[in-house]
């Protein structure tokens, strides 16, 4: 590839990586809360993003953002309360089946919204979170403000989550419940409430990813953000679904790698997703298979 393209693609890669990282944080939170591989995370993000686009037609963007975050939290909480919480003792396989199926259900909801609000025909869109017209140009890459903001928000979310987990009572309670549910509930921790709260958190994170990724030009479909969530799952795999820092690093590496591949010639640029994905999965699998087994056992217990 041409040397002068490295930097622009790096910047775009940071933005992509930021999105993966945001989604990855949600996946890790869900896994820590209930040992769930949260494939339906994509569905929550997609429905929230579509809701945002619809709401932004009538409401100020900020308010639309807040309402969509609430919608995301609501969906995730409902999923946990009505579906996932009933399968706590089920096998990992059963959990995955239900998680996948819930995702499909959300896709149906998303499709319904898209049809009813005429978004499939490219109906009127309005306001992204940041003005679409103003762009930031660094190292020869022209980014929208939103693209520019994504990695910053992602890092902010990461820092906030680390703070919450490590420095607050709530985070302490979540860590205690996930390490030893029996002792935690005997200590009087309201495990169910804490877990619900964590799930609401995953919903907020999903919605944030959805809203920040959606732009005037983005192509809204029921599988919106699905591929990205799979990338995020791959990133969280490197952290055995529990390690936030590793997940975020892997997410950024994945994003950058993918964008840099665009600069290569055919057929590599056409396979950028697959190649980088395969790479990171292999790293995760061969580097971490033992840790994975451990955390899966812990996950199955909680």
């Amino acid at each position: 590839m041409k040397a002068d393209l490295i930097w622009p693609f790096l910047l775009i890669g940071l933005s992509t990586g930021g999105l993966y990282s945001l989604l990855g944080c949600g996946v890790v939170l869900a896994y820590r809360a209930s040992g769930y591989l949260h494939i339906a995370h994509a569905g929550v993000a997609m429905v929230s993003a579509i809701s945002y686009v619809i709401l932004a037609r009538h409401l100020p963007v900020g308010l639309a953002l807040l309402v969509s975050l609430g919608i995301g939290a609501g969906i995730a909480t409902a999923l946990y309360r009505w579906v996932f919480a009933r399968l706590e003792t089920a096998t990992m396989a059963a959990k995955v089946v239900v998680s996948v199926a819930s995702g499909v259900g959300l896709q149906a909801v998303g499709g319904l919204l898209l049809i009813n609000f005429g978004l499939l025909e490219g109906g009127p869109r309005s306001g992204t979170l940041f003005p679409e017209s103003s762009r930031v140009t660094i190292f020869g890459a022209s980014l929208t403000v939103q693209q520019f903001a994504l990695p910053i928000v992602a890092l902010g979310v990461y820092a906030t989550m680390q703070y919450l987990l490590l420095r607050t009572d709530l985070g302490l309670a979540l860590r205690a419940s996930s390490q030893n549910p029996l002792s935690a509930s005997l200590a009087g921790l309201p495990s169910k409430r804490i877990t619900t709260l964590a799930w609401a958190g995953t919903g907020v994170l999903a919605a944030l990813a959805g809203v920040l990724s959606v732009s005037v030009s983005s192509f809204l479909i029921p599988t919106y953000l699905f591929a990205e969530t799979i990338r995020a799952l791959a990133a969280s795999l490197t952290g055995a679904f529990t390690n936030l820092t590793r997940t975020v690093i892997a997410a950024f590496v994945l994003g950058i790698l993918e964008q840099e591949l665009v600069g290569f010639e055919t057929p590599w640029n056409a396979m950028r997703g697959a190649v980088s994905f395969a790479l990171i999965t292999l790293v995760a699998i061969f580097g971490l298979s033992r840790q994975l087994e451990r955390s899966e056992r812990a996950g199955a217990m909680s």
Binding site: A93, I285, S289
Partner: peptide
Amino acid sequence: RLPPAAFIVMTLGFVSLIEEVVFTND
């Protein structure tokens, strides 16, 4: 070799691999 959760993620990755390499590539 893999626990189920990791296998799922991996198969999902393979789908995109097959899609990009086989179905849509020139």
